[in-house]
Simulated assay, not measured.
Amino acid sequence: MMRLPFAIVALIVALVVEPAHAHKPSDSYLTLKVDGATVDGQWDIALRDLDFALGLDANQDGAITWGELRAKHADIAAYALSRLTLGPHNAPCPATVTGHLIDKHSDGAYEVLRFTAQCAAAPKVLAVDYRLFAEIDPQHRGLLNLHAQGNTRAAILGSDAPVQRFTLGEQSNWKQFVDYANEGIWHIWTGYDHILFLLSLLLPAVLVRATVPGEPWEPSPSFRAAFVDVLKVVTAFTLAHSITLSLAALSVVSLPSRLVESCIAASVVLAALNNVRPVVYRGRWAMAFFFGLIHGFGFASALADLGLPQESLLLALVAFNVGVEVGQLAIVAAFLPMAYRLRTTWFYRRGVLVPGSVCIALVAGIWLVERAFNLRLLPG
């Protein structure tokens, strides 16, 4: 009987001890343009990832200067291109570096590696073998934009499927839908601030306002009541973030990334503190809706980082949102039955709800300070 409480505690602890800057996973952005037998490429790779792999910061002062980066250009090119193969393995298209630049993305500075690959003949099917950082970060992904014969498609490359083949001139909407749905699932599962916000709303879902003085919560009378409460919260959050995700992805509304990420952290703090000193009981769905509007801008930032072509935007928007909902429902399905079973115990109300919410609020408070003032308080 006592294994289940520790499972909930372990879930909370596993989340709150993650690095404070773990909101955005390690990504690179690879653009390929196929013209006959020539493939022109641009590869944006995060400096923080390259520094971890190659040690760009020579003097270890925490800042990578242009001089330090330029001194490592040859190493960067050799490292990256040795982990990317275009064309069949028996006749790969050799790549030559044509330039090094630097660019800013929403999560920091990136090395921009430009190259040209020359194939023996114009490929009808382009194989892409992507293994960047595979030996040090299996969760790293390459976000691919492929332009060929008037068509543009996107794909997600990573260690789970390092080799992918693309029939040039042919575009599968279903394949793109699946790719972006997977991206939505991945984003919610690795977006620790989104998970902690959801957990803050779920923790009291199996409880109701207490009728006994001095006790803020008491067990929910039935699973149906708890389920309805969760349904209201999740529906409100889904509707809200779908609205702002769509508006931002379609460039109707745009907010600064720093402001959005800071507000997301603040939403986690407030939702968690409401469990400790309840102000909102039955109206938590309204809180989920209000803060969901803010989280939608965060989802849109992740989608925009894919560099989507305009003709694929609507498809990607729908698929990404579906993926977010699938990932969110998976968390609910894993958490709710366990929490309902424990709702009558003192341990849940005093040992899980309150300490767990305090831990969530503390970590989110650190995120808030870091994001608002552009500081680094915890290793990331």
Rank of each mutant, 00 (worst) to 15 (best):
Q149K: 09
S312A: 15
L207F: 06
A225D: 12
P25R: 12
L362R: 05
P355Y: 04
L368R: 00
H100W: 09
V234Q: 00
C119E: 02
M1H: 13
H295T: 09
I264Q: 01
W66Q: 10
S242V: 07
S257P: 00
V332Q: 09
L50I: 07
L315E: 11
D103K: 14
F197R: 03
R224L: 15
N90S: 14
K232A: 10
L317N: 10
Y130E: 02
P337G: 04
A22F: 03
T344L: 00
M1Y: 08
T167H: 10
P221H: 10
G108R: 09
P204M: 08
Q164W: 07
V16S: 00
L32D: 02
A240K: 10
S262T: 13
L30N: 04
L69Y: 12
N321H: 13
D57M: 07
V233I: 15
V178E: 08
L168N: 06
L11Q: 01
C359L: 15
L132V: 13
N274L: 10
L308G: 07
R376V: 12
D27H: 14
N321E: 14
S159D: 10
G365I: 07
A161K: 13
G99R: 09
V16A: 05
A58I: 06
T244Q: 08
R341Y: 12
Y180Q: 07
Q328S: 10
L317T: 11
L231R: 02
F299M: 09
V212N: 11
E183V: 06
S262D: 03
N145E: 09
G351F: 06
A7Q: 02
G41L: 02
L273G: 04
V253D: 01
I360H: 04
P379V: 06
L113I: 07
S246I: 11
V163Y: 07
T344W: 01
L101Q: 14
V234G: 00
D35N: 11
Y348N: 02
V358Y: 03
H194C: 06
G292Y: 01
W43N: 04
R282I: 01
A77K: 05
D129I: 08
D44C: 00
L15W: 03
F115T: 08
A304R: 10
A71E: 13
R131H: 09
T190V: 08
